[in-house]
Amino acid sequence: MNGVLALSGRLQARHLLIGLMLAFIGLFLVLPLVSVFAEGLSKGFAAYGAALVQPDAQSAIKLTLLVAAISVPVNVVFGVMAAWAIAKFDFPGKSLLITFIDLPFSVSPVVAGLIYVLMFGMQGWLGPWLRDYDIQIIFAVPGIVLATIFVTFPFVARELIPLMAEQGRDDEEAALSLGASGFQTFLRVTLPNIRWGLLYGVLLCNARAMGEFGAVSVVSGHLRGLTNTMPLHVEILYNEYNFVAAFAVASLLALLALVTLVLKSIVEWRFDYQRGSVGH
């Protein structure tokens, strides 16, 4: 009798915990997400569409895509290089390098933005030199790209370092001993070994590159139609009480998040599958 009571008690606790979790997620995650779409569509599809084709919105979307198109490939290249160096070679200062790679995660994005203003701004270290050559970085697209690269740097490297360290050097050494060049080894052996981890890192990196607000906000200057990315554009519209337009653009970002989430799940599933079949 006692056992049955204990069992039903445990069942109740389980249901209670699951219920609480669902309620929490519903209240704090799903409901806000739904409300973004609801607000965006509150004046109908025509107003929603109009907000998106408006020239400033269009330029914000284009700029966001441009920034992601530059910063993601750059971080893929540097992330793979950093992960390769850390996972496959032993050298002094290795742990320091790992710490530096994590720096963007631990620094507030606003500080990251300010660093670039201090470096490249008019009053910054390189400001006079840049002005002499008529190069504008702060309050222009280059600054936004630089800040985004800084903030998103760890995603690819962080994903690859443990994966490459776990895989060791044997495969690469085998390829080299068979006469392959370094580049052939990377392309035909290393890259296939890390492809799912790399894709996962790229997805996270891309989501952050498109959604970054703080660092970009500091360096952008908020010039409408010129240096506004989508998150900045949303803020401006919201501050102007233009809720439908603000939420319409915001819903695009939310949609991006959802697509990323689905792709991430697919990649994770493939990744686990591949890992599961590795065993010796």
């Binding site: 044997d170 495969d171 050494e173 085998a174 390829a175 001993s177 068979l178 006469g179 392959a180 060049s181 052939q184 035909r188 052996v189 296939p192 070994n193 079949s277 590795v278 010796h280």
Partner: peptide
């Protein structure tokens, strides 16, 4: 020719592609 303790076979390639790797590069 080098043979590793844990084989170091390229797991995304078939057995034939593994064996032919040294010729194909």
């Amino acid at each position: 020719g080098f043979v590793f303790q844990h084989y170091a076979l390229f797991k995304h390639m078939t057995v034939a592609d593994n064996i032919g790797f040294g010729l194909s590069v």
